[in-house]
Design a protein around this nucleic acid. Structure first.
Lengths: 219, 219
DNA sequence: CGAGCCAATATTGTATCCGTTACGGAGATT
DNA sequence: AATCTCCGTAACGGATACAATATTGGCTCG
């Protein structure tokens, strides 16, 4: 048996492809997803396309109206703020557990990511690196369910914030906090680490909130 | 525009129905969901059924193998423990926010639920009441996303634990903790309330863990 | 000239049909 | 007698076909 060959249905293929496009923002929120169009595009009939759309609906990526088809869901700024609240809940708890189980190798891995981060160029990469760092830091919690939700959370937040946040928060301040956070983890200072992590996420939240205000006023 | 009449497609209807049946445990984990069978049962063709199954797959209620159809997902005891960990993460954070925003009416509502709980009879109702109480307590957090995840969490945990936990933990001890928790919330003692809530959920976790051990040994 | 109505069209939702794949049992072989 | 093979059946994935619903453009009427 070979490594990872998995037979996947056309519907799964379509769903996977669309998911990537939507999360990447290449299919912008509000776009109508025409079944016929997608079907010809993927070289299938509409049946697998419809199944894919249903799956994406369950994932919250598209919204479905009967007889009017699927539309890429709009993510409101308020919802993103909520999502960041969820992130605080998930990550602080995961971190609490993770620190107790963290071994030097985990710290080393996180450190290496931060180093790459230091030398990183394009802002588009920042959000990926950020996600990776937070994931590595939380991973030792050994709670697969928590990690799943954390990953999902990043996906959804990034969908909105890919430009809005990363480009505005900047890199230096978050990065400083990352190093400090890693330090606290290494020292096993759970309380301080959790506190810093919450502040860290809250600062993203604050920036976003300010950004929303500015947009509301400016336009 | 009237209250809540929504036209829903056959696929949605099937999905809704199956979801209820699965969560209620009437379709036990491991069951194969035959498309033909469901189609005749719902009086439709297989197409809507397949779309429904895809949606349920995305929700994690069924698992799909290509050319072998859908099976109701088995929830392992370890996963339930993980889910309870997630519950701790979500609820403690929600409670922190909720207490700050709680008004007397919220407390009154929670109190009334607990009173019903006191007089409640059948163990099957306990888990619903428990869920309702926790929901009411967290609701003032005003974070719809958090509440959504909390509800989802109860759904999934109950799917496994509907017999395993409620019947074994009993009612008296959790109920005592509920009253005490509500008291702390009313007093605005965030730290103590959060601590108690975590202990409260951990005791469920512990009971479940013991139950698992017993089963593993006994059989 | 604008608003409202109706028909033509586009798009969705569902049913039926066909090819393909997995499972199970009967028969042959060692 | 046990195992392997082959074939029949049942279930699934997908495509085409058709019915129902929404949308759009043109037309009429005020």
């Amino acid at each position: 048996m070979d490594g990872g060959e998995e037979a996947l249905s056309a519907a799964d293929e379509v769903a996977r492809s669309l998911r990537v496009e939507i999360v990447a923002g290449r299919i912008p929120p509000g776009s109508a997803l025409r079944q016929d169009e997608l079907a010809t595009q993927f070289g299938t009939s509409r049946i697998p396309v419809r199944e894919a759309l249903k799956a994406l609906q369950a994932e919250g990526l598209v919204s479905y109206s009967v007889n009017r088809g699927a539309v890429v869901t709009e993510v409101s700024p308020a919802e993103v703020l909520d999502m960041l609240e969820v992130r605080i809940a998930l990550e602080t708890h995961a971190l609490k557990l993770a620190i107790l189980r963290m071994v030097p190798e985990d710290v080393a891995e996180a450190r290496s990511i931060l180093s790459d981060y230091d030398n990183a160029g394009a802002p588009e990469e920042w959000s990926d690196m950020n996600a990776t760092f937070h994931e590595v830091l939380c991973a030792p919690c050994e709670c697969e369910r928590l990690m799943l939700l954390i990953r999902e959370n990043y996906l959804h937040v990034n969908r909105y914030a890919r430009i809005s946040v990363s480009g505005i928060v900047g890199k230096d301040q978050p990065q400083k906090e990352h190093w400090r956070l890693l330090d606290l983890c290494e020292k096993g200072n759970v309380v301080a680490a959790v506190k810093l992590l919450e502040q860290h996420i809250r600062s993203t939240q604050k920036t976003l909130r300010a950004n929303i205000r500015r947009k509301a006023a400016g336009r």
